[in-house]
Computed example of a mutant assay.
Amino acid sequence: MSARRAVLVHGAWNGAWAWEPVLPLLRHNGIEPVTLDLPSSGKDGDLNDDVRPSAR
């Protein structure tokens, strides 16, 4: 069986930290959560920043 994964995207006034209470529950049920911070949730970001590939 392949691993199950869930991508969790926060709302406008939150960050990836907002999912912290949910992460253990997902892992307990065999789902690996992936969280991220959207640049548009900051004071200087916009939608273009959200879709721009990161320079990792």
Rank of each mutant, 00 (worst) to 15 (best):
N29F: 02
G42L: 09
A18S: 14
R4G: 08
K43Q: 15
M1T: 14
L23I: 15
L26D: 04
R56H: 12
R52L: 08
L36G: 06
P21E: 03
D44P: 15
T35V: 15
L23E: 06
D49G: 15
P33T: 01
E32N: 06
D44E: 13
T35E: 05
A55L: 13
A18E: 10
I31H: 02
A55D: 15
N48P: 01
D44Q: 14
L8P: 11
A6D: 07
L8A: 04
V34F: 05
H28L: 10
L8F: 03
G11E: 05
R52I: 06
W17V: 10
A3T: 10
A16S: 10
G30T: 05
P21K: 01
L36M: 11
R52V: 09
G45E: 00
D46P: 03
G30V: 08
R56G: 15
L47V: 12
L8R: 04
A6L: 09
A6R: 03
W19V: 07
P53I: 09
I31G: 05
P24C: 04
M1Y: 08
D46F: 00
S2T: 13
P53W: 01
R27E: 11
V51C: 14
N29V: 09
G42S: 13
T35F: 00
E20Q: 12
L38G: 05
V34S: 08
D49T: 08
R27I: 06
G45F: 01
A55H: 12
D46N: 15
G42R: 07
G42A: 13
D44K: 11
V22F: 07
H28Y: 04
P39R: 07
M1F: 09
P33F: 00
W13Y: 12
N48L: 11
L26A: 03
E32C: 05
A55Y: 08
I31N: 04
R5I: 14
W13F: 10
R5V: 15
L36I: 00
H10W: 01
P24W: 00
A12G: 11
P53R: 02
R4V: 12
L26S: 04
W13V: 02
W19C: 02
E20D: 12
A55P: 14
H28Q: 14
G45I: 00
A55K: 13
P24E: 05
S54W: 10
R27N: 06
W13E: 13
